[in-house]
Amino acid sequence: MPIFYRVSRLFKTFISGILLGLVGAGVLTYSVPAVDLHREPSLMTVQANGGNSEIFRIDLPRDRILVGLVGTDNALPAGLEWPGDELFGNLQAEMFKIRDRNDVVIGVASRLANASEETGPFIEWVLHLPARGTVYLQMNLAASAEGHRSGRMIAGTRDFETLTGTVRERFITDIENEDFSAGERIELITTLIGQLGDEE
């Protein structure tokens, strides 16, 4: 076989390879997701009047990420340099991992509370569920006789964007858990419902 013919065939194969590589890389980049978030099955209860209810749990102390409060010996994590009281006063900032009803971590949350804020005392939660969205909750200051505190959803993003509803926060002591023999738990129970569409 003449050498010119062999080189020419090699060159053609090489060019075909380049085209295949270009197309293959394009198809791969287009079709394979660069980010594939892990999802846990949603554990919701359908409400009789529509909407659904979901329980979010925080086991203490294992789910604590941050405790920021002026003048406390229990700041978390160790080595945290919390800003002085001249700026934040009695602000209590906490961050947690949040779990579903099966005790599987499904997101993170922040809780800000300040009883002496000059524009008015407040307690707020932001729940960030990576695969679903973020929920912004505002709690009533006064707790009920049973020790619960109720509140409402102010805003939501992505999956929660069109929902409205209420939330109940309760603090449970002396829980029993296989991995977590004794401790405390915060439960947030949301009841969310989609807005009705415009009537035609």
């Binding site: 660069a34 980010v35 934040f88 961050m95 932001v126 960030h128």
Partner: peptide, 28 residues
């Protein structure tokens, strides 16, 4: 307080490395 999560809408072919983020802000 800023929560950031890589977005599933990321499409490198369109020059988009997207992140969903939420700020919880307190201004005394």
């Amino acid at each position: 307080i800023k929560f950031s999560t890589d977005s599933e809408q990321t499409a490198l072919i369109n020059s988009q490395a997207l992140v969903n983020s939420a700020w919880h802000i307190y201004l005394p």
